[in-house]
Nucleic acid binder design. Structure first.
Lengths: 148, 148
DNA sequence: TCATATTGTTTTGATTTCAAACAATTTGCG
DNA sequence: CGCAAATTGTTTGAAATCAAAACAATATGA
């Protein structure tokens, strides 16, 4: 007895204790979600879209605060913004404190974001296809209690 | 009005629509979980431990089947197993089909895994600290319905 | 004023992953 | 059986993603 109770664990392999671990299920879920995202929003990664959304909600935000917000190092943010700036989606403007750069969406950035938002809405529906509205809300809440 | 309802979104920044997206919450949760894992199980990543658990549950499993099970390319598996073999945690043995390698845990691999399992149990408890047993089960179930 | 802190940057390196091409081997069709 | 086609593990090359350390410019505060 003791057949593992799971949908499609690992292509015929015995998944062992993995399916009982939150971290493992998170990884699988994220993999699925990211792949759907990549297939529906082209040319830009989930993380980069997240960055744009953050800049949209906080125009002129500083690079360091952005880095802190997404849990990355300051030095990591440099390359990310270089990319986004090379694509003309954001621009850096010197702040009043001349050490800082304020980050702003360009017109192209706002336009891409508007298009992306529609794609994301569809994406989100596919992701939650097997969940009722209440279950989806519950999932978001539980995830919020895991990820501080 | 319309203060975003979230715990600690992004260090004082307006998180925008992100907290309403499953993918975003998954990423945050996974980040938290992986960091706790790294802090409690030293010298080996969650993915690598998962690999060992899979090999333990399926002694002699083939590299290709392992790759399929974890959703990686065959060529990716080569480097991963090279690492684990360099650490003397697994070994490859030629199979009856001489194209294939069977993967097996070494004594050291079993020993490390036994130790890791205890650390993982503690880790799992910390991760689910803010969840009741029922909530934890619900989370696993909902995640299973996201990540095919 | 001047020691201290912060900001963005550069450089370096680690990690993880895939794709394409390849030899060895097996399988299956005729 | 015999040989074309598929499979397996591998090598090579490349692309993302990220962090740590050191640095110059600038701001802060005692």
């Amino acid at each position: 007895m003791s057949r593992r109770t799971q949908r499609r664990p690992a292509a015929g392999l015995d998944p062992g204790p993995l399916p009982g671990l939150i971290g493992y299920r998170l990884r699988l879920a994220q993999q699925t979600v990211f792949r759907d995202f990549a297939a529906s929003v082209h040319g830009i990664s989930p993380g980069r879209i997240g960055m744009l959304l953050l800049v949209e909600a906080n125009p002129g935000v500083t690079q360091s605060r952005l880095a802190l917000a997404v849990g990355r190092d300051r030095s990591t943010m440099v390359g990310v913004l270089d990319q986004l700036e090379a694509k003309r989606l954001v621009e850096r403007r010197k702040g009043a404190d001349r050490r800082t750069n304020g980050v702003w969406l360009t017109r192209a950035g706002r336009s891409l974001l508007a298009r992306a938002k529609r794609a994301i809405a569809d994406h989100e529906q596919r992701v939650a296809a097997r969940l009722s509205a209440a279950e989806r809300a519950k999932l978001l809440e539980l995830l919020g209690r895991i990820g501080a």
